[in-house]
Nucleic acid binder design. Structure first.
Lengths: 148, 148
DNA sequence: CCACCTGTAATAATTATAATTACAGGTGGT
DNA sequence: ACCACCTGTAATTATAATTATTACAGGTGG
């Protein structure tokens, strides 16, 4: 599962949990809204739990937010689902020829700029909380019902 | 070809052109250093030409920088190889269920944060020029030869 | 001319990604 | 204490994305 997909699924799940005061939904139900496989939901929820963003109980459907929406940033969500193996925004780069001076050194030469770019991206994600997202969704839903 | 790969290949090619005062290298030679297929080299060089970063001539091997290294930023390189088809940093998101209020609206709700994140990333790339990269490579090559 | 190259499209091979299956437990209601 | 239903996680299969390869119509310069 790609980081982008995991991030999208994670945010979606958290929004569903945050907005749905009703009965706790099993992974199968969440999967219908997200549009993916229930197992993918469980895997992502497992990561969110490990990161301390939600609380779940094995065998019991659904989950609760572990802290207020205001305190969950998009950055935290991103980090929660970012796996050991392959996070880097830019997976620079395939297989440069080690016999060529440029091929041998370009990776290191690009390290700082790319790290900088990734940090800038992550910094932007820190500016938004789950609350911002759910507020935005709520607002749009209201508009659907009243107007139009 | 993925945007990340294209970006890496493009930077590599530009560094090779910038550093190699010697004879112009055909795509096959560049491919050896980059570690990919010659056709990929030609495709990326085609993009770089369209973006006004290099000058090439059909039938004649190699290419020249169209402007000084100082004036070619990593951002420009990134933009040059970014294709129409939607390279967006976060391809949010697969196929949310349109029958669910959250699934129907989350994409729009995430739009601003994700756009912001991408802009931040691109802003960081603007801070570095091709010269920074080639200087760094040159420095590392020097160190390889003298010390160690 | 001719060997060598570019530019680009189309196809084939490979790899990454997501869906599915499987199963060992946990839970809560009855 | 049972049972239907669920989670958590690994292993496998199917599918989609990506890269390599083939192909070929020109351009170039000796």
């Amino acid at each position: 599962m790609r980081i982008n997909t995991r991030f999208a699924v994670a945010t979606h799940i958290l929004a569903l949990i945050a907005l749905n005061d009703a009965a706790p939904a099993p992974s199968e139900r969440l999967a219908v809204s997200v549009g993916c496989h229930p197992v993918a939901i469980r895997q992502v929820m497992s990561s969110l739990k490990k990161a301390g963003l939600i609380e779940t109980q094995s065998g019991t459907p659904g989950g609760r937010l572990a802290k207020p929406q205001e305190e969950i940033t998009l950055y935290e969500i991103y980090q929660a689902v970012k796996k050991e193996g392959d996070p880097a925004l830019f997976d620079f780069h395939p297989n440069p020829n080690q016999l060529c001076p440029v091929g041998r050194n370009i990776r290191e030469a690009m390290k700082i700029p790319l790290y900088d770019a990734q940090a800038a991206m992550e910094g932007a994600l820190k500016k938004y909380s789950l609350r911002d997202i759910t507020d935005s969704i709520f607002e749009k839903v209201q508009r659907e019902q009243t107007n139009m």
